[in-house]
Write a protein that binds this DNA or RNA. Structure first.
Length: 562
RNA sequence: GCGCCCGUAGCUCAGCUGGAUAGAGCAUCGGCCUUCUAAGCCGAGGGUCCCAGGUUCGAGUCCUGGCGGGCGUGCCA
């Protein structure tokens, strides 16, 4: 590829001057008059070589003058090198794209190594809300990006089926159960007030009858607990499936207690000599590893604090062979990051283990007003409702289009709008258009380039600026995917796709059969038509693959339901 | 008090290791459908990139100090 060729030549030239570690850019300038590619290498070298950047640029321009695919090189501004490429060199990427097909954009950065993405990990105490939706979309797409980067990815959901919140859920179910039997038990302090608890109590009543009516013991509570957890977990799984999110494994916090891992972890931490007793509790010197203060690990009453199962769990991940772990969590959990890592470091794990992607919260707007939702108060906008309302594809896209650490305002009106305002439709529409183009060509009895025949098309015929701009954009897809994967930032893909769809539409309009028949894709000239249909095929491939990475359908035709 | 994140157009937000005249969508205004789907395109207006210093040939981007907002800072999970 021409970019690699040029960048190698530049690096080699720098090396010839004794600079082997120069950092420079070689990318597509915003301004068309700055060429197809521009580099700041002369500016980067100026200080090292103690020479004016324009002189260096001039030397480089002369030196690279004969390089294949480059038409001419200009020195501009303070010392930028602007490369103007031959049409054939630019178009060559189209052949690569159609040959790679549904694999275009993949790379082998992960080299087949295992990596775990843990996400959602909601407590089974209620339905998934929109915050979980953002997390589900982020985690799933980060996993997909890692897969596209050659990692062996494992998706895991950790569910907290132990502890106080679950007890409160069971007590809330019992209160509702007894209410249904005519008692006036109040929902306990700190309990769950949502209507779904009443439904669970009703289902429990239907299955078990009134046998637990006056039974206040542990066994009754346990029966309600496991029933409620089962119902809620099934519901969460259903909502996630509707959102096109699946997990390889659901890991139970309870199991960490029942199989002794929490106990083993306490003993292991105690054996490090980094623990001490104070006020009747057992503390861990997490400050040794950068935490703001030491933390209690075993409370005065003998029970472990919540971060211990987290440490035990991550030791278990490590033992299962996952030395690369990405945890996707809400930023309200950031306080726990340091202490969990500190506990793990005390046990000899590396400092950056595990990695965290902390996303900001989601607020919902409808009619310009913020919609308040609170789990405890029982007022809801659940992920299931949202998927059903706007569709999984739109919901996923909206959750993904902002970078994780930025606050997300979910505009329900815009998401529900199936007309021209929704960015998801713009991308899908561009894809459908390209499919339509191929279909029409076939209907007119023309051969349409496919994976095997497209590489024979003469891409150097694509000289119009809309064609070149689109072609160059398509060539950058793998780089964007790589950047999105390594940065754990799916929104980069959204931005790329919106821009690409825009260029597709511009190109499409520029070849309007009436106003500008010379640039139309479906022309009589077979050579030109094949070149343009190859461009269409390549663009369709990129849009399809980009949407696939986001877990979104790329339709062959759009049906307007008006 | 301390820690993390955020502050860019009227609104919601991009801006990759510092690069050329700061971008997109929505909203506003003006054009474009007898031929490939107008769910689209073309154009216009709209900016103290929170403020003040500093580093640099060059700062929205890096450093320091402020201001504003969110979250955290439990022997709660």
């Amino acid at each position: 590829m021409y970019t690699e060729r040029i960048s190698d030549a530049l690096r080699e030239a720098a090396s010839g001057w004794g600079v082997d570690d120069v950092r420079f850019r070689l990318d597509r300038p915003k301004e068309a008059s700055h060429g197809d590619l521009a580099s700041n290498i002369a500016l980067a070298l100026a200080a090292r070589l103690k020479r004016p950047p324009r002189d260096i640029a001039g030397d480089l321009a002369r030196r690279l003058a004969g390089i294949a695919g480059v038409e001419r090189i200009e020195v501009a501004g303070p010392g930028f090198l602007n490369f103007f490429l031959e049409a054939g060199a630019v178009g060559g990427v189209l052949h690569r794209i159609v040959t790679a097909g549904s694999g275009y954009g993949r790379n082998e950065d992960g080299a087949g190594r295992r990596i775990m993405v843990e996400f959602v990990s909601a407590n089974p105490t209620g339905p998934l809300h929109l915050g979980h939706g953002r997390q589900a979309a982020l985690g799933d797409v980060i996993a997909r990006l890692l897969d596209w980067s050659g990692w062996d990815v494992h998706r895991e959901f950790y569910f907290n089926d132990a502890g106080r919140q679950i007890s409160r859920l069971a007590e809330s179910v019992r209160a509702r159960y007894r209410q249904l039997l005519g008692h006036d038990d109040p929902v306990p302090e700190g309990g769950y007030h949502g209507e779904y608890v009443v439904e669970i109590a009703g289902a429990f009543l239907e299955r078990e009858g009134d046998r637990y009516e006056n039974d206040g013991d542990e066994a009754a509570l346990e029966a309600m607990r496991s029933f409620a957890v089962g119902v809620l977990r099934d519901e969460q799984k259903r909502d996630l499936a509707g959102f096109k999110v699946h997990f390889d494994e659901y890991y139970s916090e309870r199991s960490l207690y029942s199989d002794g891992r929490v106990k083993v972890t306490i003993e292991a931490l105690d054996a490090t000599g980094l623990t001490y007793h104070r006020d009747g509790a057992l503390w861990l010197r997490t400050t040794r590893f950068g935490d703001q203060k030491d933390r209690v690990m075993v409370k005065r009453d003998g029970s472990p604090t919540y971060f211990l199962p987290d440490v035990a769990y991550h030791m278990n991940k490590w033992e299962r062979g996952f030395h690369e772990v990405v945890n996707v969590q809400g930023s309200d959990h950031h306080g726990t990051v340091d202490r969990v890592r500190a506990g793990l470091q005390a046990l000899g794990r590396p400092a950056g283990y595990p990695e965290y992607v902390l996303h900001q919260m989601v607020t919902v707007e409808r009619g310009g007003e913020e919609v308040r939702f609170s789990k405890r108060a029982g007022s809801y906008t659940t992920l299931g409702e949202l998927s059903a309302e706007v569709g999984a594809d739109v919901a996923r896209y909206f959750f993904l289009m902002r970078r994780p650490e930025a606050h997300l305002t979910f505009d329900l009106d815009l998401a529900l709008d199936e007309s021209d305002k929704n960015p998801v439709y713009k991308v899908k529409y561009a894809h459908a258009r390209l499919c339509r183009l191929e279909k029409l060509a076939r209907e007119r009895g023309w051969d349409v380039p496919d994976e095997s025949s497209a590489p024979r098309a003469d891409a150097s015929l694509l000289r119009a600026s809309a064609e070149r701009e689109l072609t160059k954009q398509l060539g950058e897809f793998p780089g964007f995917l790589r950047r999105a994967a390594s940065g754990r930032t799916p929104h980069v893909v959204c931005d790329y796709l919106e821009r690409t769809a825009g260029l597709v539409n511009s190109w499409y309009q520029s070849g309007h059969p009436t106003r500008n028949p010379g640039l139309a894709a479906l022309v009589e000239d077979a050579g030109l038509r094949d070149a343009r249909l190859t461009l269409a095929l390549a663009a369709r491939t990129v849009l399809h693959n980009g949407l696939a990475v986001l877990g979104i359908e790329a339709p062959e035709r759009m049906v307007r339901d008006e």
